[in-house]
Simulated scan of single mutants.
Amino acid sequence: MMKKRGGTGSLLVGDIGGTRTRLSLYDALGKRLLLEAVLPSREHGSFEEIARSFLGSADHPPPSVAVLGVAGPIRDGVATVTNLSWKLDEGKLARSLSLDCVVLANDLAVAARGCLHLPADVVVPLGEGRPKAKGNHMAVIAAGTGLGEALLVWDGSKHLVLPTEGGHTDFAAQGAIEAELCAFLSKRFPEHVSYERVLSGNGLGALYDFFVARGARETKANERRLEEGDRNATIAELGLSGASRPAAKAVDLFASIYGAEAGNLALKLLGLGGVFVAGNIARHIVLARREQFLAGFRKKGRFSGLMAQIPVVVVTDPLVGVRGALAIAKDLVADGEAPPARPKRASPRKRSSR
C-alpha cells in the first residue's frame, strides 16, 4: 500500500501523445493546480527528460504519484508511444523521478474517464440532446496524431472504462469513392489499411493526395503554402475555407468517414448514452462539417433510426485526458490503494492505445 505523506506530496498527471505532452501538477488532494504545461513531444528524447524539465521549472512539493495517459500499447506496465520513439516503464519511471507510484494508462481510456467529469460549457452537441450517462453505455473517439477509441460500460452502478485498439481495425469502404480511396491507400500501406490511416492528421494529408491523384487541381499559391509549415494543418485550413478544391474534398470525406467510424463504435457497444468526439481535429473539422459527420454516423441501413437517437457531442476541452488522469490519481490516494511501483505490474486500466 502507498504510504500517505500527510499532504506533502503532489500529484503529477498527464496525457502523452505523439505530437504534444500535456502535464499538470496538483496538490496532494488534487484540488489545487500548481503547475501546467503543453510541451512538444518530438523535441525531447524521453518522457523522463520532459518530466524533469517540467518539474524543475518552479518551486512545488515533489510528486508522489503519477498517472499518465499514453498513446501507445501498454503491457505489464511498459508502454511504447505509437507515433513516437519513447518507451515508458512504470518501475523505471518511479525510480528515475523518485515517485511512490506510477500508473500508465491507455490515453483514450483516460480521456473517457475525463468525459465523466466535464462541465457543460466544454461539450458541444452536434445534433439534439446531450449524453445520458446513468444506465447507458457510452463511447469516446478521438482523431489526432493517431485514432483512439474507448468504451464507457455501465455496470449497474457506475461506468467501467475499457480501452481499445479500434483505430487499427480494417478500414471499411462505403461506396465507389471510398473503394477507390482504399485501393489508393493499399499501394501506400500494402501491409494494412486501418481507420487510423484515414482518420488522423496524416490521414487528412492522404485524402488530399488521393483527390489530387484523381484530378482535382491545386493552385500554385496553395502548393507553395503546403510546402511550408505543418502540411496537414494547412490542408485543413484550405479545405475549411474553400480555398482549395482537393483540400475541401478531403475535409468533407474525412468528416463523413469519421462519423461512420464513430457510428460503428456506438453500434458495437450499443452506446445509447452517447458518443464523445474529442481531440484537436474534432474541435476544427467536425464542428465545421457537422452535417457530413452526422450523415456518416447515422447511415446504418436498418439501424439509421436508432443512430439518430444517439447523442453525439464534441469535447472542446483539450485537457480532457488530464482531467481523467487526475480523477484516477485522486481515487488512488483517497483509497490508499496506490502500491509502490514495481518493474512489472498488470492493471485492468492498462491495455493498448493508439
Rank of each mutant, 00 (worst) to 15 (best):
R197C: 04
D209R: 09
A262H: 05
D100I: 03
I281T: 04
G305N: 03
V103M: 08
K31L: 14
P73E: 13
I257A: 12
A262Q: 09
L306M: 10
A37M: 11
R283G: 15
C115Q: 11
D170K: 01
C182P: 00
P246S: 07
G229H: 04
H168I: 01
L35R: 15
T219C: 06
S157E: 15
N83H: 15
H137M: 10
P125F: 03
E228S: 08
P339W: 02
G45W: 00
N222V: 15
G273T: 07
G114H: 10
R42V: 01
G215H: 11
Y258S: 08
A173Y: 05
V314N: 03
G17C: 05
K31G: 11
S96R: 11
G305C: 00
L185F: 04
K4Q: 14
E291R: 14
R289K: 15
L272Y: 05
F171Q: 03
E291P: 02
A133M: 13
V333C: 08
D170R: 13
F47T: 01
L207Y: 03
G69A: 08
V320L: 06
C182K: 15
G17H: 05
S194M: 01
R351T: 13
V65H: 11
E337H: 04
H137R: 14
L326A: 06
D331T: 07
K31A: 14
D335M: 06
L29V: 08
L147I: 03
A176V: 13
V193L: 00
R52L: 01
E36Y: 08
K330P: 03
G167T: 05
R225T: 01
T164W: 10
L181T: 00
I16Q: 00
S352V: 10
V313C: 14
R245Y: 04
R354I: 07
K220E: 14
A109N: 13
I141A: 10
G144T: 09
H192I: 00
P190N: 01
W154A: 12
G301I: 01
P343G: 02
A143K: 07
L294I: 12
A79M: 13
F297A: 06
A176G: 11
A334S: 14
A233G: 06
E90T: 09
A308M: 04
P339C: 02
L319K: 09
